[in-house]
Amino acid sequence: MTASADAGAALGAPVVQITGLRKSFGPREVLKGIDLKVAQGEVVCVIGPSGSGKSTLLRCVNLLEQPTRGTVSVLGVEVTHPDVDIDRVRTHVGMVFQQFNLFPHKTVLENCTIAQRKVLKRSAAEADEVGRKNLEHVGLADRAGSHPAQLSGGQQQRVAIARALSMDPALMLFDEPTSALDPELVGEVLSVMRDLAESGMTMLVVTHEMAFAREVADRVVFMDDGQIVEEGTPAQIIGNPSHERTRSFLARVLDPTHKHD
């Protein structure tokens, strides 16, 4: 569709391919025909005003929302096909939520091992080892025995990332991972995500963190009113947007009086 999308495809078969995606909640159409590709190893940030459909788009990728029309393929599997084994696809797609959604009745380590054991059928010892390794990556190896409620928001979100990574995913989805955090805790989560991007993980990130998008994203997608208005490199979209809607959104978000700076 655009030059950058073609460039992404050149890296290999797309990890995510979305075509003509529409989603309605009752009479309200939230996604009005979305086409998007994410290539292997690519980091794509989706930005846009609240209510523009960013989160819904992300949730359609692992079918937390059932698309109304269009097709979504993930890792070569068409997840919109009626006969798809979505549990199998989800095993390879990690998701990080705005509200963390850690399991409060499990310890930090158990949060990272439960799905490994139940879905991947790993032994307790192997699951523990993988879980601890990933907790170490996010800097929380020493909190393995804690319960989520004993951690700060930033720590909880890092555990949520470790939990997703413990499944050895081929794709990571981030749904506004820092929006529920106190400002001083945002940095620690973004730095984990930056490391992850540098390690070559394919990432689709819905975010309001423009600095993160500018620095880490290979491609930025601007959405408004259920449509992709424009997409391109961070320099193009954040530095020099071509659409008025993008400009006015960025002006609002990047306004120095705004709390997110």
Binding site: N62, L64, D87, R88, R90, T91, H92, V93, G94, M95, F97, Q99, N101, L102, F103, P104, H105, I114, A115, K118, V119, A160, R163, A164, M167
Partner: peptide
């Protein structure tokens, strides 16, 4: 039990039965 618990569990690839037994019922 919050809906987000089910979503987190399902997005890890756990089936609805595994989610019920491992996540929802204990809470």
């Amino acid at each position: 039990v919050p809906k987000g618990q089910v979503e987190a569990s399902r997005s890890l690839g756990m089936t609805s039965g595994q989610t019920m037994r491992g996540v929802v019922i204990p809470q």
